[in-house]
């Protein structure tokens, strides 16, 4: 995975701090997410977690295309695909972020993030789409294998002091840092 062979002209390190930071204090936002997780435990008997929703959608699409094959797979047998709390949660995230970005004048409406564009050029739409797709694929496989993602393990699992969640989130940041360094800092 070495983009530098193809983009050797753009070897300059891009500084992420030159772009706008968060609108609110990260401590305040984090504390409120902690309170929100108390609400989801109390009112919904569920921990916050995002990755499961995508597996539900995958199973629903699979049932449309190849119903009997999809039902024969262990994961979908154990976790029947349906519109449940998790899918609604992720749908809500899109809406909530839209409201937040709109209220703060931070709607982007663009394909290439500014920092990506500075690194990989203005004509890298296809490369960005492929890399984001492959990244999504790795994350989904990794999250299902590890049992959760940055929210399910990284917040909900670690706050319950689950040993596996701490192992998973530490590995997430190790893997992420290595690949991000290869992409941006080499």
């Amino acid at each position: 995975m070495n983009f530098n062979d193809h983009y050797s002209v753009l070897l300059a390190v891009v500084d992420p701090l030159q772009y706008a930071g968060p609108a609110w204090s990260p401590y305040l936002v984090g504390a409120l997410i902690g309170v929100l997780s108390m609400f989801t435990f109390y009112f919904s008997n569920k921990p916050l977690g995002a990755s499961t929703a995508y597996a539900r959608l995958a199973g629903m699409l699979g049932k449309l295309v190849a119903p009997s094959h999809t039902k024969s797979l262990k994961y979908f047998h154990d976790n029947p695909p349906k519109i449940g709390w998790e899918v609604m949660l992720v749908g809500g995230v899109v809406i909530g972020a839209l409201i937040a970005a709109w209220s703060g004048g931070e709607i982007t409406g663009r394909l290439l993030p500014a920092m990506w564009q500075e690194r990989f050029g203005a004509h890298s739409n296809l490369l960005r789409a492929i890399v984001a797709f492959v990244g999504g694929g790795f994350m989904a496989f990794g999250a299902r294998m590890a049992g959760g993602c940055t929210s399910g393990h990284g917040i909900s699992g670690t706050l319950q002091l689950a040993v596996g969640s701490w192992i998973a989130v530490i590995c997430i940041f190790i893997g992420g840092t290595i690949v991000a360094m290869l992409m941006f800092a080499v």
Binding site: G136, F138, G142, A146, T150, C171, G175, G176, I178, V179
Partner: peptide, 10 residues
């Protein structure tokens, strides 16, 4: 799973 997720995250 965590390492693979991390690679995809980046």
């Amino acid at each position: 799973g965590g390492l693979l997720f991390g690679a995809g995250f980046a």
